[in-house]
């Protein structure tokens, strides 16, 4: 390389090497969590069988009850999945856990419907009357729980279609989840089927206490910690393409264990206990200092309000989370990065880290945008490319007449198999491919890369919208 490089500004090592972030260590931790999940799901059944349960009932009645226990075990697990527990998010990625939570919730509600349906069809006597004024309270609690969980799923799946506001949806979700789980536990202990043994009752009471502890941690202790460590908005600047960057300065403790490319939940002006918080990528790198920058495109809900945040406003941060980081790829010989629009932000954070470290590894960035004039962070990319081995290919669908993307390359069109094959070097197939952008672009790029022989394990993407 004969590019004019500025000297390395600080004594950063060129690569982040941490045994805990090595691929085998990440896979071992993920396997450990899955094993723990299986054990947690089997525990209620083991406790039932270890006791002295009544035998001889018809299979349909026994199965109806055991399906109910299975549903409850799956639901109890949901609180751990959505509690933003860092040890749990680290191997999987905090963006994928809500996806997992969604699929698992469908299963839980399916088992719950099985429990209800089998009793309804074959054992009406167990159900009693529907009228809550005459029915035992624990039976009404069971019906309330079923209703809560059905509403939870429906309100989450249809939130956008029915135009439910994000903040109100979060309030509804939390309220229904708390009510539903409490009602379900009341139902199980009140009905008393297969819970006569002290061990079984202790298990469910223990699960309830653990659940209450988790809620206390997520909704009270963590916000209290955030309240003691506020941040201040020190700059709000235009980055092009409608993107605004908020620069925040720590007023208490800065972020710990922060890797480039991670994101954090940002709450502005409302206090750390507010449910009005959103996940945003931190678009700068830890190597640049304790200040953090969120680059926000006002796409809807609260992001327009956040983009107008005045300088001096107090903010609260929960994070960092996420695994979209070059620091998980210490052994990679180079990187392919593919960004669409505002999806550049986590990629930019990684590039900032490489620039600060003068990481010598080659990076090929394919950056797709609608128009040339509105490309965000174009100047940042030019500056970074002076310091590291970065090749940028701007992909513009409708470029202006006679456009000159120098010093970078420019291509008219969209990110597709042909474009990737033409602009990525042959020896990059085994490099990590880090992608962030709109879902259709990611799907097209993933298919194209697979067709070019890139292994699945080398394709990493960040999910944009969690809900």
């Amino acid at each position: 390389m004969d590019r004019p490089q500025t000297p390395r500004p600080a004594a950063h090592p060129a690569r982040h090497v941490d045994a805990a972030d090595a691929p085998w260590a990440v896979r071992a931790r993920a396997a450990g969590w899955v094993a723990l999940a299986v054990a947690a799901l089997l525990l209620p059944f083991a406790v039932i069988l270890a006791g002295d349960p009544p035998r001889g009932d018809p299979l349909t009645r026994n199965l109806a009850f055991t399906l109910g226990f299975g549903a409850l075990a799956l639901i109890a697990m949901q609180f751990a999945l959505t509690g933003r527990l860092k040890p749990l998010t680290r191997p999987f990625g905090a963006d994928i856990l809500p996806v997992f939570h969604r699929f698992l919730s469908w299963g839980a509600v399916a088992l719950m419907l099985g429990h209800f349906g089998m009793l309804y069809v074959w054992h009406q006597d167990d159900m009693g009357v529907l009228n809550p004024l005459r029915a035992p309270l624990h039976m009404t609690a069971g019906r309330v729980a079923l209703l809560c969980f059905l509403t939870l799923i429906a309100s989450s799946e249809l939130r956008k279609r029915v135009g439910l506001d994000y903040l109100w949806w979060r309030r509804l979700h939390l309220g229904l989840a708390l009510t539903g789980f409490a009602a379900a536990i009341w139902h199980v202990l009140g009905a008393g089927h297969l819970t006569a043994e002290p061990a079984t009752r202790a298990l469910w009471l223990g699960a309830t206490l653990a659940w209450a502890g988790l809620i206390l941690h997520t909704r009270v202790l963590r916000p209290m910690h955030q309240a003691r460590n506020p941040w201040r908005v020190v700059e709000n600047r235009d980055e092009g393409d409608g993107i605004r960057s908020l620069v925040l300065e720590p007023q208490g403790r800065p972020l710990r264990d922060w890797l480039p490319g991670q994101f954090a939940w940002l709450s502005v002006g409302q206090g750390p206990f507010s449910l009005r918080e959103h996940p945003f990528t931190i678009s700068t790198a830890p190597d640049k200092g304790p200040e953090i920058r969120f680059s926000i495109k006002p796409l809807g809900d609260d992001s327009a309000r956040l983009a107008r945040t005045p300088v001096g406003t107090t903010a609260w941060i929960d994070g960092p989370y996420g695994v979209f980081s070059i620091d998980r790829e210490a052994d990679a010989p180079g990187f392919v990065m593919i960004a669409g629009g505002v999806g550049i932000t986590p990629i930019l954070a990684n590039l900032h880290a490489m620039q600060e470290r003068r990481d010598p590894r080659p990076v090929h960035l394919i950056y797709a945008n609608d128009s040339w004039e509105e490309i965000a962070f174009r100047r940042d990319l030019e500056r970074i490319a002076r310091d590291i081995d970065l090749t940028v290919t701007h992909v513009i669908e409708n470029p202006p007449e006679g456009w000159d993307p120098a010093p970078h390359r420019g291509v008219r069109g969209r990110v597709d198999a042909d474009l990737l094959a033409r602009h990525l070097p042959q020896d990059s197939r085994d490099w990590p491919h880090m992608m962030c952008g709109p879902a259709p672009m990611l799907a097209a790029a993933r298919k194209a890369l697979r067709g070019m022989g890139v292994p699945l394990s080398a394709i990493h993407s960040e999910i944009f919208e969690m809900v």
Binding site: A30, V34, A37, V38, L41, L42, F45, I48, L49, P53, P54, R55, G56, D57, P58, L59, N62, L63, F65, T66, L67, F69, G70, A73, L74, F92, G93, I96, V99, F100, F103, L104, G107, A110, L111, L194, L456, I459, S461, I463
Partner: peptide
């Protein structure tokens, strides 16, 4: 981890729970 892997893992855990529920019910029925 990709969404498809999350789906496969979720289905596996649901299947494990279902299998445990059926096995327990069969043992109780005798």
């Amino acid at each position: 981890m990709r969404p498809r892997l999350a789906l496969i893992l979720a289905l596996t855990l649901i299947a494990v729970t279902l299998a445990a529920a059926v096995t327990t019910a069969l043992i109780l029925t005798g």
